[in-house]
Design a protein around this nucleic acid. Structure first.
Lengths: 398, 398
DNA sequence: ACCGTTACGTAATGACTTGCCGTAAGATGG
DNA sequence: CCATCTTACGGCAAGTCATTACGTAACGGT
């Protein structure tokens, strides 16, 4: 758990590191033999043997049928991704989307639910809780280990809502603590644009970029940001709020002309078909959007800008013009791509965030500044890290 | 060396960690006894004993006179900061500043040298080399372990000059490789604004901020940035170049009115004395400056903005108006402070960067994405990390 | 049925940490 | 000056974790 370098370590630390290494190797691939694991983790087969025995005992892995090959068939083990599940919830104004996955991030089920926009803050909360509970009840075998909510709001380090324009009644709510009581697992809360960035980095257009800006282009425009492979939130979670600089025009006519229109998709379609009026409207929109993006790009000089949000369904019809303007405004223009994860972005990002925290807790990996840990939440200290790893998993899905 | 978690570790890793822990503890304080070190590093006295013996043998530490106290006097050891030195060079258009420090960052000597602005690129290079060599020759006891150059340019990850407006002839130069041949040590190259940020974080106004923007306000305006306690450079080292966005006015009249004036200090002085004309000029300057800063602040939401560069000598006379405008432009206004390290900022930051790399190499600490390692530069691999630590230090200053 | 290949299992070795206990070195007080 | 007290040093034994080495087991191929 120390890893910080300030204090030294004993053999127990070594063991934890090796357990972690073995798990990492196993999670990233097909079932493996002891020898293969040892090679991949640069450990002796002997050590791997002991570690594997412990992990098997605890239920994190299980033996599978050996492969047919020359020589004595090697035992093979696989990571039991079904030993835990996480739930990601995309909280929107008009409804929610939920995605349940196993520890590998494989989607078990998804569900969305409408929600009356006029519903009160507390009612919305209980409604979400009820939806989630109902959804989980259909998957009784799932052992929920974490939960993450994506919200259109500025969220602080502890998962509290600092400010939300779309959901004003939630401002000031300690959402992470509340959601932490829903199920027997920690709950995390994060800004939706940041989660979209996470999703895009995980399985989308930003898979190979460690520094990128995730733009949310929709009725509301915002941005998430990943720098050095990690989400950058800023002091109060307000990073990416470039729209607040009136000078750049994100709240001006050129923007609203398109995004507040009854059917923005039609405008993009018309522009693609060659309608000069629609083309001009799109271009004006793209130019102003690009100004805001340029301010961010010149500030952090990312590899890539991913355009997401409702309007990203226009794909290249939007990304193209934006790229054109951006190239003129920047010293070192980044790549520009349209989102590839689409409407699932936020829910998927929520899953990803929940998985990262789960992994960190279970395997004692990188200690990171993270979101509020509510629910079970006993912080992992000293040797209890090892214990945490070997808590009863058995019975979860046996 | 691995620390990444992908591969496991053996007892040798443990030892490296413990050596590192002991060194960390010793470097941060007065001479200590074995027992004190053990407590601080949470290691047994036994272990500390062995580690200390090795470090003493290698010359990194030495015994000092025991303190008079009850009981058998404990041996005390201190870190030999004089076992290595680093040189930081601030390369400006009109001259250079050099600072030589020991491994603790204690300044041994400083020196500045004029340089004709019209000098050619290669001549400038040889001139700098000669200055540095002469400077070092006056300190023959110093065992130089690293060298860092701060330049007014966009520098890539390998220490090559991508683009420099003030020193156009250097654009495209692989400066790190060249400087790496000067002395028997690695050389690093970094943008001057970034180094100023490093200095400010180390010993200046940003000591307690891990997310801040370092503004350079002078004839040229630029910015360095520290996010999450680490320099943020961006893909091509072009982070912070917000001045390129013409819309924000950093190259406009309001800016040039002050910074291109023959005596900017006088304007600030007049404004402070109540001269309405000067006050207006300062305010216009501050407003435009604040617009650019606001774009960066809204993008990354830092804790603090430090105003450095030549104009920062105005102190609150500049920081005050900037703060006033910034508060109006930002959702979550950061603190605003004037630089406290002053003209030494870049040279000191260069020292700091050199020290960080030196520490990382010698003690096998954090593996970081760093600048080009020229010179000796054998990458530390496998067990050679330990060997690196125990290379001959003896004789350096005995 | 034999042989070669590959993996498994046990034993031996080395390294590091911890805990214990006797000894050494200086200060304090008579 | 000497006895005593306090604290640190030094050696010894035990436990944990890792690696290497070697004999054994299991399967496919001939």
């Amino acid at each position: 758990m120390n890893r910080t370098g300030l204090t030294g370590g004993d053999p127990a630390l070594l063991r934890r590191l090796n357990v972690e290494a073995v798990l990492r190797v196993m999670r990233s691939a097909e079932p493996m033999t002891l020898t293969q694991i040892g090679r991949a983790a640069s450990l002796s087969r002997q050590t791997v043997d002991v570690v594997i025995a412990e992990l098997d005992e605890a239920g994190w892995i299980e033996e599978v049928a050996p492969e047919r090959s020359i020589g004595r068939p090697a035992r093979r083990y696989r990571f039991r991704a079904e030993a835990g599940h996480v739930l990601g919830i995309d909280v929107g104004v008009a409804g929610i989307r939920m995605t349940l996955t196993d520890l590998d991030g494989a989607v078990v089920a998804s569900r969305s639910a409408e929600m009356a926009p006029g519903i009160s803050g507390p009612d919305r909360l209980t409604r979400i809780h009820a939806c989630a509970a109902g959804f989980l009840a259909e998957h009784p075998h799932a052992r929920l280990r974490a939960l993450c909510l994506g919200v259109p709001a500025i969220v602080d380090t502890y998962g509290r809502i600092r400010l939300s324009t779309p959901l004003p009644e939630w401002s000031g709510t300690d959402l992470a603590s509340i959601a932490g009581t829903w199920f027997d697992c920690p709950a995390y809360v994060e800004n939706d644009a940041n989660l979209a960035a996470l999703a895009e980095h995980w399985r989308g257009a930003a898979r190979y970029a460690d520094d990128f800006i995730q733009l949310i282009a929709g009725k509301r425009s915002g941005a998430g940001m990943m720098l050095g492979g990690r989400l950058h939130r800023g002091r109060g979670g307000a990073a990416g709020e470039i729209g607040a600089l009136a000078l750049l025009g994100w709240e001006g006519d050129a923007m609203n002309d398109v995004r507040a229109s009854p059917d923005p998709a039609q405008i993009f379609a018309d522009a693609a078909a060659g309608d000069p009026s629609a083309t001009a409207r799109v271009d004006r929109f793209a130019r102003v959007l690009a100004q805001g993006i340029a301010a961010m790009v010149l500030t952090v000089n990312p590899d890539l800008v991913v355009i997401g949000g409702g309007l990203s369904q226009a794909g290249e019809a939007l990304a193209g013009p934006v790229r054109g303007h951006l190239d003129k405004l920047c010293l070192d223009p980044p790549q520009v791509a349209a989102s590839t994860v689409g409407v699932e972005a936020v829910a998927l990002g929520a899953v990803r965030l929940a998985l990262e925290h789960t992994n960190a807790e279970l395997f004692g990996a990188h200690t990171e500044g993270g979101r509020k840990v509510a629910g079970t939440g006993a912080p992992v200290t000293g040797r209890s890290a090892g214990q945490g790893l070997f808590e009863s998993v058995r019975g979860a899905s046996d």
